[in-house]
Write a protein that binds this DNA or RNA. Structure first.
Length: 284
DNA sequence: CACCATGTTCCTTG
DNA sequence: CCAAGGAACATGGT
């Protein structure tokens, strides 16, 4: 379940569980999620290798492993696509229906499941080179943002989804950030006045940081036993309130009253994706 | 049956 | 060169 905050929470959760663990068996059930790596290549690289670290970059998960025999560490790149999940489960538990890659460790099993198979788990790290700056890092400065937006006449909402501009913003947080900044989603990027650019820069960081903070405090079911899903995207741990949905100001709220001015939230389609906005609060 | 879906890439058209 | 639109990937939910 993937936008930057969800991937960040997952990385923080998995990193200490995986560090130092050795891969005893590799079971690829959906070879397409490895592309362009082949099943044989993955098996050769991972068998007997040990997890060193796990970090996030944009919506990607970067695993560092040390191969069997102590040669130089190598990278493994994960992406959750739309429906991917990664978790550890007891070695004895049956695998989920859509398990795509299964790594047997000692006494537990790492599972990458993905019904739609839009996700990836691959030795090809090439996708990372096409990413723009991390939105929560210094490199993502108001000046950088302003210059980048000036060069594009694309609608600002569409531009926010461009991973080469800034890495990790997806369809939900793009709408949320625009609302926080009071910016109309269809305004061309180059037509944003500087104060709006700065407001949007702040809003992107704030929306993402708040989502990470929220995810850090929720009782998440990473083991994947929950009914809807184990993360905090739409789902929640069993028996807990749905804090997450209430945090969203506009996403998936078409027709419902704006939480600020009570005007009905609208939905429009841009680049074949839904955009949600308040026509009164977002006139910039 | 219809339509929608957190992502990315490729292709066509203007 | 740019932007917009659509399709593709494959599956599930409502």
């Amino acid at each position: 379940m993937p936008e930057l905050p969800e991937v960040e929470i997952l990385a923080r959760h998995l990193a200490p569980l995986l560090a130092g663990r050795t891969i005893r068996a590799v079971d690829v059930r959906r070879a397409r999620v490895l592309a362009p790596t082949s099943v044989g290549e993955l098996e050769r690289a991972l068998l007997g290798a040990r997890f060193l670290s796990l970090t996030r970059r944009g919506k990607f998960l970067r695993f560092q492993l040390r191969p069997r025999g102590g040669r130089a560490p190598f990278g493994l790149l994960g992406h959750l696509g739309m429906t991917g999940r990664m978790f550890l489960q007891p070695a004895s538990r049956p695998l989920p229906k859509h398990a795509a890659v299964v790594l047997r460790l000692d006494r537990s099993t790492f599972v990458f499941e993905d019904p739609r198979q839009f996700g990836r788990l691959t030795l090809d790290l090439g996708a990372l080179t096409r990413l723009g700056p991390e939105p929560l890092a210094k490199h993502f400065s108001p000046a950088y943002f302003a210059v980048a937006l000036q060069r594009s006449r694309q609608a600002i909402k569409v531009k926010l989804l461009d991973q080469a501009l800034v890495a990790g913003v997806g369809n939900i947080y793009a709408s949320e950030a625009l609302f926080r900044a009071g910016v109309a989603p269809r305004r061309p990027a180059s037509r944003l006045p500087l104060p709006q650019v700065n407001a949007l820069h702040r809003a992107v960081r704030r929306v993402l940081a708040e989502a990470i903070a929220c995810g850090s405090t929720l009782p998440l079911d990473f083991a994947g036993t929950g009914r809807r899903d184990g993360h905090f995207y739409y789902g929640r741990a069993e028996g807990t309130p749905d804090y997450y949905a209430e945090r969203l100001m506009v996403y998936d709220r078409a027709g419902e009253p704006c939480r600020v001015c009570a005007t009905p939230i609208r939905r429009c389609v841009q680049a074949a994706r839904s955009t949600f906005y308040c026509p009164r609060c977002q006139r910039g």
